[in-house]
Design a protein around this nucleic acid. Structure first.
Lengths: 117, 117
DNA sequence: CTATCATTCAACTATTTTGTTGACTGATCC
DNA sequence: GGATCAGTCAACAAAATAGTTGAATGATAG
């Protein structure tokens, strides 16, 4: 988990993952957009590999990388737990509006309707 | 984005977020479960704060922390992009089974049924 | 045998991160 | 005034990270 989030915490590596989402890439192709030495890019790739986000196939004399998205599911779930909190504000607003409606309705002596979800 | 994923890349900080999900906590309460000095825990809290995941309210002589989940939505979306890939294997299996069905069906000269979701 | 290609490895440096300890702050209580 | 409390700040050390350069690898092509 640490390794996955750490891998994602760098723009260079996120860009590499994006590129891999479009299809397999050699180390050279992954490195190309980044203003750094090939050796440095190679290290970034190794970080992604250690996090299990990349599978490497040594083909001919080139190393071909593939996206391995499966481990991202746990990270996604970890964050998903907090979804209830970033949607809470909207819920609260909604609830307030609904209460206001209910108030108006009851003032008109009409029983308020429940509308949960 | 870097800051958010970096904040999440440490178990200590993820635990603090979990604790905050249960309600507001003082710095001391957040630090308590962790085998480190209060100053060290305070630094972790500062990392979370810098990532915008915590709001601090200075109340009385204690600092009370609140979860600020909103920035997590972007991180969640970032990862969600890859959902198509970690579900792909199942899709492929499904498709293969469906094609096999279709094959059998056409051999029986019966039009195949669609059953999308 | 030598050159080339795609990439890794090793050694090094600079920066950041994570932890420690001890001193400081700012308010209240006696 | 002096003690206490919750926390921060500063200075330090150890480890990890991110980058560099130059040499090594391992297979094929000439």
């Amino acid at each position: 988990m640490d390794a996955i989030f750490h891998a994602l915490s760098d723009e260079t590596r996120r860009r590499m993952l994006r590129d891999l989402a479009a299809g397999e890439r050699t180390v050279g192709e992954l490195a190309e957009p980044h203003p750094m030495s090939l050796a440095a890019a190679s290290k970034h790739i190794k970080v992604l590999e250690k996090a299990g986000l990349i599978r490497r196939e040594i083909r001919w004399r080139t190393h071909v990388c593939h996206l391995e998205a499966a481990p991202l599911e746990r990270a996604h779930d970890e964050i998903a737990f907090y979804e209830q909190f970033w949607t809470r504000k909207l819920d609260t607003l909604e609830r307030l509006l609904r209460e206001e409606d209910a108030q108006n309705a009851s003032e008109l002596s009409d029983p308020p309707k429940r509308e949960d979800e």
